[in-house]
Design a protein around this nucleic acid. Structure first.
Lengths: 134, 134
DNA sequence: ATATGTGCAAAGGGTTTGCAGATAT
DNA sequence: ATATCTGCAAACCCTTTGCACATAT
């Protein structure tokens, strides 16, 4: 997790320059979880104290465009996560946290494709109360 | 569709005052479709030329809070629609339009409930290309 | 050497807020 | 009569943009 050589390889393969900022951002996100720009910025400042808002946005948006990250909007902010198998994002109204729930959504994809719609991205966002789950 | 007496009844039943602005907003949304605040404002100004941004926001947010409308976020904006059976919102990247696709999502609801999560709202948002569909 | 990336500050777009005057009950 | 609602303007996020300097290749 967060393997540096893997990250360098990934950036190079996409034609991106390998900068400390980009490596740090990818290391953070590769450990899993969901982050807003603000959360990324705060974490990154521990490692790269001078990293700027625009660099974080630039990087996140670039990585989304290249398909490395996914983004979705909730609570008035954009959230970023590593792109992986389609899943469900559950937003807990008590804790404000977002968690992944791995449920098969291929039935929905199949139905929608049948209608002639080419799916670029699928987001299942559930707002709820996760008390009872840890 | 947009039955005025029905709307008046609805507002009264929620303890809201029946104002021309609220009636007009509900009439618009009861005909179906998805609207941003801006779209609502533009439509409403045809009927109530002096209606203000804050009134539109106030009304939309109040109606969401009372469960009459649903809202979700996409493309940096909040979208509003009448609350009805769970369905899928497909955002067409070409036309920018949002359309409903009625697909059963109860399987997902069941799975998530099993995990002890109390669902307050379920959103399935698909970004795609609707060429081929009309 | 040079194309690309970074940091800063300013601008942009959507949404909320505070408040005085207006309106529904 | 009065609690609620409306409209206006200002304030508040979050995100993007322009540009000079710095850095990776």
């Amino acid at each position: 997790m967060g393997n540096i050589n893997e990250i360098i390889e990934l950036l190079r393969s996409k034609g991106l320059k390998v900068t400390p900022q980009r490596v740090a951002i990818l290391q953070l996100l590769m450990n899993g979880g969901h982050f807003t720009m603000d959360q990324v910025l705060n974490e990154l400042r521990k490692i790269e104290p001078n990293i700027s808002i625009s660099t974080v946005y630039n990087t996140l948006n670039t990585l989304v465009r290249l398909g490395i990250l996914r983004s979705f909007e909730a609570d008035g902010k954009t959230w970023y996560e590593m792109r992986k198998d389609p899943h469900i994002n559950v937003i807990c109204e008590d804790t404000g946290q977002i968690m992944d729930v791995d449920i098969d959504v291929s039935a929905i994809e199949r139905e929608v494709s049948k209608l002639g719609i080419e799916i670029k991205d699928l987001n299942v966002i559930i707002r709820g109360n996760c008390r009872g789950t840890s």
